[in-house]
């Protein structure tokens, strides 16, 4: 574009930059500073060095929250991508009612995860939940087993609810990726004697890699920040068993441990950085 016009265009980014600096970057920088203090939200903060971080790793509740958050994210991201991909492969191509089916599958994703959590709470509550009663009516007198007692079952249920809600989103991204694959590649694969499995392995999956990357990265970030579903389904309980790091940050902030809660946020940030960098690397190298 013409050189003489360069002056004005820089200003067009200014509103976005001001808003973003004030409400995102500045708090982020402040948070890094705060994480080295003992601030309680009211009195003047004292610098305590790395004390908050040492406290974090001594706190069994915090360590349990890391375990819960990471397990939830790994479970969600892998299952979401697997199920989303299978759904997309089934839903690809032309058939009657295609648009309607896509809308129905995407529908759960537009609803508040908090409300979703409550819906599944009505369904899965041991004893009087809908599923429990349905099982009783089928003749099993005990109804649904009490999943609230077992950590593994709790995590599984939380992951499944999350997967159920967001599969539509993963599916849509994979469908978009599938549309981008040229049909000629399948033709030539057929000529080379590849069956459905062969086409999937040598054409579909390699060409879907960009979509897979987008999906995995967004799912891992989203799931590591999990808040609503857990609040609605288990409230982090029993005790602190299924509490996530986001919920811990919120509760520490309300518990007048502001400095400490920002330190937890920084640790969470570092945790999020790991899978993001790894997955970006991996998919880029294969190209």
């Amino acid at each position: 574009m013409r050189q003489s016009k360069i002056g004005l265009h820089t200003f067009m980014a200014v509103p976005a930059l001001v808003l973003f600096t004030l409400f995102f970057l500045l708090p982020l920088a402040q948070g890094i500073g705060m994480s080295f203090t003992d601030w309680d939200g009211l009195r003047t903060p004292n610098f305590v060095g790395l004390q908050n971080f040492f406290n974090f790793f001594k706190d069994t509740r915090a360590l349990n929250d890391i375990k819960t958050t990471v397990l939830f994210a790994l479970g969600s991201a892998s299952l979401l991508n697997l199920v989303g991909l299978v759904y997309a492969l089934i839903m690809d191509g032309k058939f009657r009612g295609k648009g309607l089916a896509r809308v129905i599958i995407y529908l759960p994703a537009v609803i508040s995860p908090l409300i979703m959590g409550y819906i599944w709470y009505f369904l899965l509550q041991p004893g009087r939940g809908f599923l429990s009663i349905a099982i009783k009516q089928l003749g099993h007198s005990e109804g649904l087993t009490n999943w609230m007692n077992t950590y593994c079952l709790q995590m599984l249920i939380l992951v499944l609810v999350n997967v159920w809600q967001y599969t539509g989103m993963a599916m849509v991204i994979y469908l978009a990726g599938l549309q981008g694959i040229p049909k000629e590649l399948y033709e030539s694969a057929k000529i080379d004697g590849a069956g459905y499995g062969g086409q999937l392995r040598y054409v579909t999956l390699p060409l879907l890699l960009p979509s897979i990357r987008v999906n995995i990265v967004t799912n891992i970030i989203g799931s590591l920040a999990v808040f609503d579903v857990i609040m609605a389904l288990t409230d982090g309980g029993p005790g602190y068993a299924t509490e996530s790091l986001s919920i811990y940050i919120m509760r520490m902030c309300y518990g007048a441990k502001t400095g400490y809660s920002t330190a937890v946020a920084m640790i969470m940030f570092l945790i999020i950085l790991v899978p993001v960098v790894i997955s970006m690397r991996l998919t880029r190298e294969r190209k």
Binding site: T10, A13, L17, F20, L22, F23, F24, L25, L26, P27, L28, Q30, G31, M34, V217, I221, G222, L224, A225, F227, S246, I249, M250, C253, T258, S261, T262, A265, M266, M268, F269, I272, L273, V276
Partner: peptide, 28 residues
């Protein structure tokens, strides 16, 4: 260069969930 830097800043920020800076944002 400036615009490239701005773009990269936004790109990297995409990976930071809001909860990370919510507590300091509260004071602001």
């Amino acid at each position: 260069k400036v615009n490239k830097a701005i773009f990269w800043m936004f790109l990297c920020s995409m990976m930071i969930p809001g909860i990370i800076n919510t507590v300091p944002l509260y004071t602001l």
